[in-house]
Design a binder for these strands. Sequence first.
DNA 1: TTCTTTCTACGAAAACATTCGTAATTAACA
DNA 2: TGTTAATTACGAATGTTTTCGTAGAAAGAA
Lengths: 128, 128
Amino acid sequence: MSKYQPTESELEILQLLWPNGPMTVRAVNDILNKNKDVGYTTTLKIMQIMLEKKLVIRDESKRTHVYEAKVAESEVQEKLLSKFINSAFRGSPASLVMQALGNHSASAEELEEIKALIDRIENNKNPE
Amino acid sequence: MSKYQPTESELEILQLLWPNGPMTVRAVNDILNKNKDVGYTTTLKIMQIMLEKKLVIRDESKRTHVYEAKVAESEVQEKLLSKFINSAFRGSPASLVMQALGNHSASAEELEEIKALIDRIENNKNPE
DNA sequence: TTCTTTCTACGAAAACATTCGTAATTAACA
DNA sequence: TGTTAATTACGAATGTTTTCGTAGAAAGAA
């Protein structure tokens, strides 16, 4: 995994690459522009920096390069999450979870899934 | 609530002010220096900026000023959490919760508390 | 009082991230 | 072919955050 943490703009681009797979700068920039104004060369530059940081790889066989995420979404999430728990929730994952559940909606299925996960954790910790 | 979001260093200081109550710059800087090297005037400057942003208030009646958090911890957490869910978990609180529970340890009591919270949410949504 | 330490205020430097203008090249097309 | 459009590379400008040096005032100690 890349030793670099993505910045905010880099993360925004990764969030497009992860679900969509390989994309051109143009495609990324078009999507970004649905929400805000970003110049084409701005997006290009950031993606070039991401290449240097090894957050992405690119296919240069054609003139129009195609970029692909090199870091896994779950790994990036895990790093960011650890940092976030420490910096905003005094290192308490439980208090983050409580706040997330309390103030943000989840579907009935998701809630069941979470309960099932907790059950599995409890059973592993207290095997009988 | 302050219209400003705390930066990382500002948040680090708020994390000291919240549990400890009013503190001097000296006290804050001493604690920060247990983990890393930070110059006294650096800490002072950041706390002065926090004052401008109205993240803290200060008592100037003595020569040595005493700073106190003005924003509530839960409010700051909530704002940061919303942003974090969007930027790192594609807007899915449930996937954040799953990852937090899966990779970070919580005590048995905390797990029960979380389950109880989920039960309350489920009952509110489907009252009988 | 005089010297030393501690504190605040201020501004500038350094570090980091974002944005964009420009030039060169390639592709597309009339 | 020759003109236009799209793409990359590069560097510089801008913006934001962090760090720190310096000066002056206040407090404490000898």
